[in-house]
Design a binder for these strands. Structure first.
Length: 424
RNA sequence: GGAGGUGUCGCCUAGUUCGGUCUAUGGCGCCCGCCUGCUAAGCGGGUUGAGGACUCAAAUCCUCUCGUGGGUUCAAAUCCCACCACCUCCGCCA
């Protein structure tokens, strides 16, 4: 979210900042007008209220003779105050609503365009040449079934489409990945957090998931709560309505939680296997830092992701997402796409966003600096989304006989196991 | 889910009976100063927080803030209603 002060001091700067998102530029004009109304209403209210207080004191001190006249006067004033209060509320609500609709301004150098206009920044590792090896790679579901690792049919039986059950080595593989990811995060200085997957509307609203992404979110009307699509929501809301000690920044957290996504609007897309599912577990990184440090922190998060994926030995690409595909909250986003042999292409496995002050303003998170209270920035990044990482491991490290070689870094977390072998 | 209790400025606390000098008391802690080889103790002073106005800055001023939101009233920490959180007991339950 943009700085409300900027609305008054330099609306043109805002227009420039929003230029990459054409739809929101006109919002700014409304916002400027709404802000003027709001400020005028507040000033009027405060003046009346001040007057009322003085009059109230006079009433208290009044003699029986002077009292009735003062009371009449006070009653009239009270009506005016009530009216001004009402007016102020309406103006504030209108302003807040507009402000909430405005997407985060993107950085100047973010590639312009839509979903397909990303820029590949880097390619790391080389995909295996299965032709040279003389066999056609099986896809993750076939491998998962051979290994007794994935039970799609029963997942669907229990819960419906896009649900799965991880069985046997599949379950062990996820747990191993989880332990490995957690220990890496801790090693890098992230504070591990196990957070609720069920949150209040304010948490969802504050992180920006009730805007464009609202249709993708599970809502429980009976309790007025949402199922999170990522632990980012809880990690961001963790410090809501707090003033952090600037000396404690950056705060680096690692969250682990189940994630729930309705995947509305993706009917028929990636329906096979566990690539796109309604529920999965994820280890997530989250950072609170000074606004001027956010870009550097973003690079660090990306470096962590690259380190993690590389350490497993998965070939991948790093790409920067174009402005039109950033969502409400990100000012910049990098995705890592891992190689999927059965599809012959790279697919998304991680995503890291610099949300600058968008979330912290909505969640009212600030920090106390040497020169006063000021804003903070938030960032998030996937460390390990389990099903997708399982896909990467099964497919990239499969052997001719359907067995899968366990990446060496993962072996300590799998009881030293080197190979997953098909059931007899 | 049922019954009862609690929620005050970092922490503890007075104030709520009976609405108005509450512009919220006191202690702890913290900050500044004095005193003293050093430290501690002692003495004096300061200390809710946020938003805004003005200013180079300081000073000053205004609004909001006694869990949150409403209501009553000229006026609410104080009265009424709803909600939230915590505590105790009961019930249910992994």
């Amino acid at each position: 979210m943009i700085d409300p002060k900027l609305i008054r001091t330099d609306p043109d700067a805002l227009r420039r900042a929003q230029a990459a998102r054409k739809e929101s530029v006109e919002l700014i004009d409304q916002l400027v007008a709404a802000d003027e109304d709001r400020r005028a209403a507040i000033a009027a209210f405060e003046a009346l209220r001040s007057e009322q207080k003085d009059l109230g004191k006079a009433v208290a001190k009044a003699t029986p003779e002077t009292r009735p006249a003062l009371l009449t006067q006070a009653k009239e004033l009270a009506d005016k105050v009530k009216e001004a209060d009402e007016f102020t509320k309406v103006a504030e609500e209108r302003f807040t609503r507009l402000l909430m609709e405005l997407p985060n301004p993107v950085y100047d150098d973010v590639p312009v365009g839509g979903e397909d206009d990303f820029v590949v920044k880097e390619t790391i590792g080389t995909p295996r040449d299965f032709v040279a090896e003389g066999f056609a790679p099986r896809d993750h579901l076939e491998l998962g079934e051979l290994l007794g690792a994935i039970d799609m049919e029963r997942g669907t039986k229990i819960s419906g489409s896009r649900f799965y059950v991880l069985t046997g080595v599949g379950a062990l593989l996820e747990l191993a990945l989880t332990h490995y990811a957690v220990s890496k995060a801790v090693e890098w200085g992230f504070n591990p957090m196990l957070v609720p997957a069920l949150v209040k509307p304010s948490a969802m609203e504050g992180t920006g998931f009730l805007g464009q992404a609202a249709q993708d979110v599970y809502y429980l009307p009976a309790d007025d709560q949402y199922l999170v699509g990522t632990s980012e929501v809880a990690l961001a809301a963790y410090h809501s309505n707090e003033i952090l000690d600037a000396n404690s920044l950056p705060l680096r957290y690692m969250g682990y939680s189940p994630c729930f996504r309705r995947e509305a609007g993706s009917y028929g897309k990636d329906t096979r296997g566990i690539f796109r599912v309604h529920w999965f577990d994820k280890v997530e990184m989250f950072v609170y830092c000074k606004p001027e440090d956010s870009q550097e922190e973003h690079q660090k998060l990306l470096a962590c992701e690259k380190d993690f994926i590389s350490s497993l030995g998965i070939p991948f690409e790093v790409l920067e997402v174009a402005s039109g595909d950033l969502g409400l909250s990100a000012a910049r986003k990098y995705d890592c796409y891992g190689w999927v042999p059965s599809q012959g292409k790279y697919r998304e496995i991680t995503s890291t966003s610099d949300c600058t002050q968008f979330q912290s303003r909505r969640l009212n998170i600030r920090a106390r600096y040497a020169d006063g209270v000021g804003p903070v920035a938030t960032l998030n990044g996937t460390l390990c989304a389990m099903p997708r990482m399982i896909i990467m491991i099964l497919e990239n490290f499969q052997n001719r006989d359907g067995s899968v070689t366990v990446p060496p870094v993962l072996r300590p977390y799998l009881g030293g196991r080197e190979t997953l072998t098909p059931l007899a």
